[in-house]
């Protein structure tokens, strides 16, 4: 089996898990399982959790240039464990994957990095906080006493692009589900999931045409689990939206035999309300041909209980992350009953 295919399966493919792939189909292999009611602790939980099978540090940013032009950037570090522990040297069973994306209205750039734990090439340390692979890094610049994620420096480079950002959180951490215990299917698969959705961002994009100074907003997702998806789930559609009135909405639907939805409504002061299965409704409005596939890049998201109807338009419909593990990820503009900006991620197309 190809290394990269292996990673695809390990990280993304619930179907493979359903087929009992390499003994990874169950959590009977010693991996830790999220427990309801366990309180998250910081700074410890900002760092890696080697006992859990998968984990990520997922930052998306909606940005504008001085001329008002829209941009988007993504910085992600994935961790995947072959065994529920960390060992030093090449014996480490921890495998790391970095993704960086940069979207402009007429171009999309993506790059990836792979590495192993144990030898200092990649990792995520809680204090002082630093998540890194090669020269890509997300490093805390927070002052002592403040939450480590409240200020960050983030950098990445690809073969034809690069970026560097300073992020400052304007609000508290937000916990999804029940205090960070987030249900991922009707059958009860769950993960630990918290976010910092209140970043203001300044930084520089290195584009082939030259550097561009940008400002905007950022949203960091932290999630870890050992089996987040039910075996029949094929992929998901996920949005993080910052409304112009200061509210935030995180919502996703997991596509399987049945549709499972969940979401979090966040007030400007950080008060989070979990939205149960079925509260949100996702309706594709239009598709685009992207990398040889048909992808629903325009969506209508309804929250009937609040009479909310949002329509999303991609800044660039061609925001395909054409990497070993490929998916659609890019900035969106939101209109409808509310306006705002956000990020859309679609997998399994």
């Amino acid at each position: 089996m190809n290394v990269k295919v292996f990673l695809v399966l390990l990280l993304w493919a619930p179907t493979a898990l359903a087929q009992g792939f390499a003994g990874l189909g169950t959590d009977a292999t010693g991996f830790a399982v999220p427990e309801r009611g366990r309180a998250l602790q910081f700074p410890r939980d900002h760092g890696a959790h080697p006992a859990y099978r998968i984990e990520w540090w997922y930052l998306t940013m909606t940005l504008q240039g001085a001329d008002g032009r829209d941009y988007g950037a993504q910085w992600t570090l994935f961790r995947s464990a072959l065994a529920p522990e960390e060992r030093t040297g090449w014996d480490s069973p921890q495998v790391w994957m970095g993704h960086a994306g940069l979207t402009t209205p007429d171009a999309h750039f993506a790059a990836e990095r792979f590495g192993r734990g144990g030898v200092g090439q990649a990792g995520a340390e809680a204090a002082p906080f630093r998540a890194y692979i090669d020269d890509w890094h997300m490093t805390s610049t927070a002052s002592t006493g403040a939450d480590a994620l409240s200020a960050l420096k983030v950098e990445a480079t690809g073969p034809d692009f690069g970026y560097s950002f300073e992020l400052t959180a304007e609000g508290p951490l937000v916990f999804h589900g029940e205090n960070g215990y987030s249900i991922k299917s009707a059958a009860g698969q769950a993960s630990y999931y918290y976010s910092q959705p209140f970043y203001t961002v300044t930084g520089t994009l290195d584009l082939p045409t030259g550097p561009v100074e940008v400002t905007g907003q950022g949203w960091l997702d932290r999630e870890w689990s050992s089996q987040p998806l039910a075996s029949d789930q094929q992929g998901w559609d996920w949005v993080s939206i910052t409304l112009d009135d200061g509210h935030r909405l995180m919502g996703f639907q997991l596509r399987g035999a049945d549709i499972f939805t969940a979401g979090t409504w966040i007030t400007p002061d950080g008060t989070a309300t979990a939205l149960p299965d079925g509260a949100l409704r996702f309706t594709p409005l239009g598709t685009a041909q992207v990398a040889g596939r048909t992808v629903p890049v325009r969506w209508q998201i309804d929250w009937p209980a609040r009479d909310m109807r949002l329509v999303t338009e991609p800044v660039n419909p061609q925001a395909w992350m054409d990497l070993t593990v490929s998916y659609w990820e890019g900035p969106i503009r939101v209109s409808g009953t509310h306006t705002g900006r956000g990020y859309l991620e679609m997998t399994g197309y």
């Binding site: 089996m1 190809n2 290394v3 990269k4 072959l82 792979f114 192993r116």
Partner: peptide, 16 residues
């Protein structure tokens, strides 16, 4: 994980 494509191809049928 960091090796060039040609090297990784040698592992084409293996178990990482």
């Amino acid at each position: 994980l960091t090796a060039p494509q040609g090297t990784a191809a040698a592992l084409a049928d293996g178990d990482l």
